[in-house]
Simulated scan of single mutants.
Amino acid sequence: MLQAPQRTALSGPALVRLLARLADVDAVESKQSLSDRLSQWLGWTDAIALSSALNGSPPAAAAGARSFGRAEEDECARVRNSLASAIAGDSVFAVARRRGSAQAAPRGSVETQADYAVFRQRYLALQQSMETAIGTLRGRLRALLAARTPAFARLAVVDAVMERALSERERTLLAAVPGLLGGHFERLRDAAAQQSLAEAEVHAATEAEAEAAATSTDPSRPAATTAHAAPLTQDTWLNVFRKDMQSVLLAELDVRFQPVEGLLAALRAC
């Protein structure tokens, strides 16, 4: 018996693994090292700036700057929790629940009013919120790091150079995520439509059989009973999509927050 090929398990961030599953693709891990990939992403001006930050004299620590403490830790946690709550509590992603049969769609049909443009617009808005809030937080942490020792001040400069060098590429890559989710949306919608059509055909055949049995004059022919399939609405597949989109946004938040976690680790080590 033939067996479906097993996809290679990815070891990358949850965002990559989740997108590979939702896009139904067999993603292959890159054979390149991190340094090789960075060399392709950095322009020559970026390389010069990075070389200067790594090899030049460390900047002097700023005098009179605030020290890192519990308040800064709490602010980082607050920003992250606020962004996560905005994703989890967004009304566009709220799971729909039927409150009664009056809200059910006609048997064997799938509503077609769902518009992916609404989800795409909301995803982009949440991406912008993450980029703005995390960028501001990252700058604050760099300022605190620069006020420590010259070595930590150098690290703050390196982080600023890397942010400038990679922000455009990061923005481009993450901007492609809504497009991948659009394909997932369409596949779920099409699968639901096919299921609805199949249920409608079964229902029509059952009704025809019941009508034929009711008009038959043959007393030996058993009476047919009409089977009623459960109504299928767009809520079922849309709820799946809503939860998937939320999961992707939360995974993206984890990726975006990694530089902040790195700066926090450096500040704790001061």
Score class of each variant (00 low, 15 high):
216 S>T: 08
255 V>E: 14
1 M>P: 05
144 L>Y: 04
104 A>R: 14
127 Q>L: 02
215 T>K: 08
264 L>T: 11
159 D>R: 11
161 V>D: 02
1 M>R: 14
197 L>I: 06
156 A>Y: 10
69 G>R: 12
67 S>F: 04
97 R>V: 09
102 A>Q: 13
87 I>D: 07
24 D>C: 01
56 G>H: 09
103 Q>W: 05
238 L>Y: 06
160 A>W: 02
229 A>M: 06
70 R>P: 00
122 R>E: 12
162 M>G: 05
138 R>M: 09
242 R>V: 01
51 S>R: 14
239 N>H: 07
122 R>I: 02
34 L>C: 08
54 L>C: 06
225 T>F: 03
118 V>F: 04
188 L>Q: 13
215 T>E: 13
158 V>M: 10
261 E>H: 10
40 Q>P: 00
22 L>G: 01
7 R>C: 02
261 E>D: 15
193 A>H: 10
98 R>E: 06
252 E>K: 12
188 L>I: 07
116 Y>I: 00
193 A>T: 06
146 A>L: 07
13 P>N: 09
231 P>K: 09
133 A>W: 02
106 P>G: 08
27 A>V: 02
182 G>W: 03
211 E>W: 00
85 S>Y: 01
202 V>G: 03
60 A>K: 12
233 T>W: 07
46 D>A: 12
52 S>R: 15
19 L>N: 10
96 A>W: 06
266 A>G: 01
107 R>F: 02
109 S>I: 03
157 V>Q: 15
